[in-house]
Design a protein around this nucleic acid. Structure first.
Length: 379
RNA sequence: GGGCAGGUGGUAGAGAGGUCAAUUACACGUGGCUGUAGACCACGCGCCUUUAUGGCUACGGGGGUUCGAAUCCCUCCCUGCCCA
């Protein structure tokens, strides 16, 4: 089980400084949560991930069920032991894959759309590669085409075998292109699945319910109220929030207003550095995002002055580090931009590791800075 | 000296008379990426412009055949292998 206490509430926003206690240690919140989908922060050892200042990781139920299978993880002593990650873990339920392997794949749709889009997913629409039923979702394994059925009960069963500290209810992450009617119908299902997920839990793990509702404010409110009433240990806020950052801010704030103060809130899959203060100010305690790790493998480093594309040949003769004064393992050791650019161009995996370490450190330090600001009454 | 095989865009390598400014890959360039399908994807990549069913110059050099040549013929130059 987990415990959460807010140490300080901001007077300027809904932001709060807190401590989340878990069987594998405490997390100072707000906290950034690196993504470790397949039981690894891609390109890093657990020791390296720890060295970036990461406190909590999120793994993925669907992917670990597929490979290596939860029984293998169990035979390895559970997720923490297998990964050699001594600190807290959460597992996402597989609800995101209902989007990413469903409509997301069909329409080449992203979770966050940069502009208004056509609401082409209407009630009754069916994704090509998966089958969403009232009871659960039939997936096709991207590995070998096997059919994989995940229901709330099955997701919880898998998550209990995996053994993270915090698990999630199974939900449907709706696509940005979903119209009102589709989103509303999906929400009814997600709410029922939330209850079934909660009832399926047998162990001592904390379980978070997930608020959906897409970009529709009334559905978001309804969802927050409903999920808050079910007795979860904490809350995830999923899906997308409309076309611009201001809408996102309002949406998250509204959702948070309807969630109990004494329980932790996790924003799923957000965000870019500029999204982080928005989420924190709206009252979010933890948030995960693939951006620092994913971009690292595409050669992009994050710095105080913006993104730096290290693929570019202009960096080859640059002997300076990614960011002067940066305390990450990469910059502290003096690995130069030129060297990293060379590694990327030579397709040497060390390049990815070096940028991943920098990026995660950058995100973690950014959030540590916001914790400081809350402490000092500046946020 | 003789014989054989070749010379195509940054590189490798297709193409064997019109549909070729030339398949493809790599390299290169520019964008994208928000609970990870993706160490990935998209686009561009001779030059010019009024960006078009546009113009110009191009498949080693020169000459020829043909309505039309990267593709056929002659010749020169160069490269590799084999024989002397």
């Amino acid at each position: 089980m987990i415990g959460f206490r807010a140490e300080k509430m901001s007077g300027k926003s809904r932001a709060r400084l807190g401590v989340l206690e878990t069987p594998h240690g405490v997390i100072e919140t707000p906290a950034f949560v690196p993504v470790a989908t397949q039981g690894t922060v891609k390109t890093l050892t657990a020791e390296q991930a720890l060295a970036t200042g990461s406190q909590l990781l999120i793994c993925n139920t669907f992917h670990l069920h597929l490979k290596p299978g939860e029984e293998v993880v169990q035979a390895q002593g559970g997720l923490h032991e297998m990964m050699k990650w001594p600190r807290p873990l959460m597992t996402d339920s597989g609800g995101y894959q209902v989007f990413s392997l469903g409509f997301g794949m069909d329409h080449n749709e992203r979770k966050v759309m940069k502009a208004e889009i056509e609401n082409k997913v209407k009630a009754g629409a069916k994704p090509k590669n998966i089958k969403i039923t009232e009871d659960g979702v039939y997936f096709r394994s991207p590995i070998n085409g096997d059919e994989i059925f995940i229901s709330p009960k099955e997701s919880i069963r898998i998550q209990e075998v995996l053994g993270a500290d915090i698990i999630y209810a199974f939900d449907e992450c709706t696509p940005p292109s979903a119209n009102y009617e589709y989103t509303k119908k999906s929400l009814v299902k997600t709410h029922r699945w939330a209850k079934e997920s909660l009832e399926a839990r047998r162990g001592e793990q904390a379980i978070y319910g997930i608020v959906q509702g897409g970009k529709y404010m009334d559905l978001r409110e309804e969802s927050a109220r409903h999920i808050a009433s079910l007795g979860f240990d904490g809350f995830g806020i999923g899906g997308e929030f409309g076309a611009d950052k201001e809408t996102m801010r309002q949406m998250i704030e509204t959702v948070v207003t309807h969630l109990p103060e004494e329980k932790p809130r996790h924003l799923l899959g957000i965000g870019y550095p500029e999204d982080i203060p928005i989420a924190i100010a709206a009252g979010v305690d933890t948030f995960d995002c693939i951006v620092p790790t994913h971009f690292a493998r595409h050669g992009v480093a994050f710095t105080a002055v913006g993104k730096l594309d290290l693929n570019k040949t202009v960096h080859l003769k640059d002997a300076s580090v990614i960011e002067a004064g940066c305390g990450c393992a990469t910059c502290a050791a003096g690995y130069s931009k030129g060297y990293i650019t060379h590694l990327l161009r030579a397709k040497e995996i060390l390049g990815f590791t070096l940028i991943t370490m920098h990026n995660l450190h950058y995100f973690n330090m950014l959030v540590a800075g916001y914790r400081e600001k809350i402490k000092n009454g500046e946020l």
